[in-house]
Design a protein around this nucleic acid. Structure first.
Lengths: 301, 301
DNA sequence: AGGTTTTACGGTAGTCGTAACGATA
DNA sequence: TATCGTTACGACTACCGTAAAACCT
């Protein structure tokens, strides 16, 4: 068994054809056929039934396909983890469909100055939450609010970095657009779009409760399109943590929503490597030194 | 990556020495060294730090060792599962430290006559319960009582085979040794050894409750040594399902404990292959046709 | 005829074992 | 000096690509 055989087998099973799989793998058809034959000989049973239309999995092949997929993914994840250990690498996990928090560039620069030999890599992926990627060893750290449930937080640590104020995404035509700070009362009668993930955050609890006071609360996924609709068409209001407000809404003036701030920090494994601990400590220092200055001058702009 | 490299790496890590690992793998030292070097070159980082005393894992190597172990075990388990599918094989799981139920030989013969092309393989292993081996795909079927918790029984099926009477293992010197059947009252004041696994079985609930009526109830692992002590030294009584009584206690006369019988059957995966379903159906038929005869003539002997 | 998989064959690259070498206690 | 890991080299095996064959629709 080797990884080439397993990957070839997976591709062949997906394509249902050795010639198509060979083309996708950039090798000649006979060589590809030989790989499968060698694998079958080593395993001791046929993976495919051949025909002039292509190949179809045997029952045993179907079972072994699951195994091959698991082996390949375990191997590749483990390899990435080991490489990041060997190379003094910190893998920062981030969801591919969300914007970059506005403090990323400054923090990365600060860290690079302090630890020039440690490499920072961003890992964009589609886990349902960043925390899962860290828990499963796919990333080393992620930026998040402290987790509410203890189950997924097993063997993970949270370090507080800063308290993030909440800003409102509103149309420039809105009467509150010129205010620098408003209270919850300003949202009476408005339509408020809230990211479902924010349920459970103390500073958003009051917002979800607005529904009982005349406001229309809509749970909607965070997206550029939604923000543009709100801004351009004046449909409603989107409350956002300051870090996201800055990267999402550059043309808008920041309207601070008074009330609680959001506890923002980093999540990492309890058995994290030294570079990861260095990264966390450095991030903590960065926000202690410059965080308040960033907040005061309005990093939300 | 190939399995030979991974296994070599695991052996080297276990031995802490390339020469010892090479000897254990029956290859020359240079070849073995080359395998590790090739693997390290492919991975892109060093697995070991070398010295004149041997080799020690680097941090990255330590991380990759876990990956290698997982990959090898996933691969080998998956291979066994696929092979059993390809070869019309039914793998019967059985704990290596427990005796064979007395009906095994008869059932296997019956099945072999009905399905001569299906191979039956016994898998002896040390899962904490047989059910886990079936759930994880390491075995296809196991003989057991119906599971009490639904959590581990997800995607598993249970088929009833027979109702097993409970027999007592007692010293021949005991006053009840000559009885063919006794009630629970005969156990007053006696020391009763019960397998902890039997907790939860309806027919054993009353036995565990005996502790409140003057009997001494000891939870003890089922073993030949325990049975011999009880038999030879007259320490107490061991209630056993009939199938185990016969294989454990050949010199003893069966003393039937009146009361409930034990629901015995087979456990197998909901997505079991045809040979496994054949095996289950055949076992069901076997006990319908011959089970009552076995019971009547005292298979406990 | 156009698609599929397979066999045949020469060249390249990898793997093994023996022998010799370098490093360390 | 004894033990450990590495390098050097010849023999063997495995893999790849080209060319040609066998097969089905």
């Amino acid at each position: 068994m080797n990884d080439q055989q397993l990957k070839s087998f997976i591709v062949a099973a997906e394509e249902g054809s050795l010639s198509k799989a060979a083309a996708r793998s950039y090798v000649s058809v006979p060589s590809f056929s030989q790989r499968i034959q060698t694998l079958e000989r080593e395993l001791g049973f046929a993976l495919f039934a051949r025909s002039a239309q292509g190949v179809t999995l045997t029952p045993a092949g179907e079972s072994f396909l699951q195994t091959a997929r698991t082996v390949v993914s375990v191997y590749e994840d483990g390899l990435a983890r080991a490489v990041s250990l060997a190379r003094n690498r910190v893998r920062v996990g981030h969801l591919s469909n969300e914007p970059f928090p506005s403090f990323f560039p400054g923090l990365i620069n600060y860290f690079a100055r302090s630890f020039p030999d440690i490499e920072v890599v961003f890992r964009f992926a589609a886990e349902s939450t960043w925390v899962e990627g860290v828990r499963d060893g796919l990333s080393d750290v992620c930026f998040a609010t402290p987790p509410s449930d203890d189950a997924t937080f097993e063997n993970l640590r949270f370090t507080h970095l800063f308290d993030d104020p909440v800003y409102l995404c509103v149309s420039p035509a809105s009467p509150v657009a010129d205010c620098t700070e408003v209270g919850h009362g300003a949202l009476d009668g408005a339509t408020v779009y809230i990211q479902p993930d924010y349920r459970g955050l103390p500073s958003f609890e009051a917002l979800f409760a607005l529904a009982e006071e005349g406001a229309t609360v809509v749970e909607a996924e965070f997206s550029k399109e939604l923000i543009m609709r709100v801004v351009m068409e004046g449909h409603g209001v989107i409350p956002l943590p300051g870090q996201y407000f800055a990267s999402c809404c550059p043309p808008l003036a920041p309207v601070r929503l008074s009330g609680d701030t959001i506890d923002q920090g980093v999540i990492y494994r309890a058995d994290a490597s030294q570079p990861v601990l260095d990264f966390v400590a450095c991030a903590e220092r960065y926000f202690q030194e410059e965080g308040s200055a960033l907040l005061a001058t309005g990093w939300a702009r």
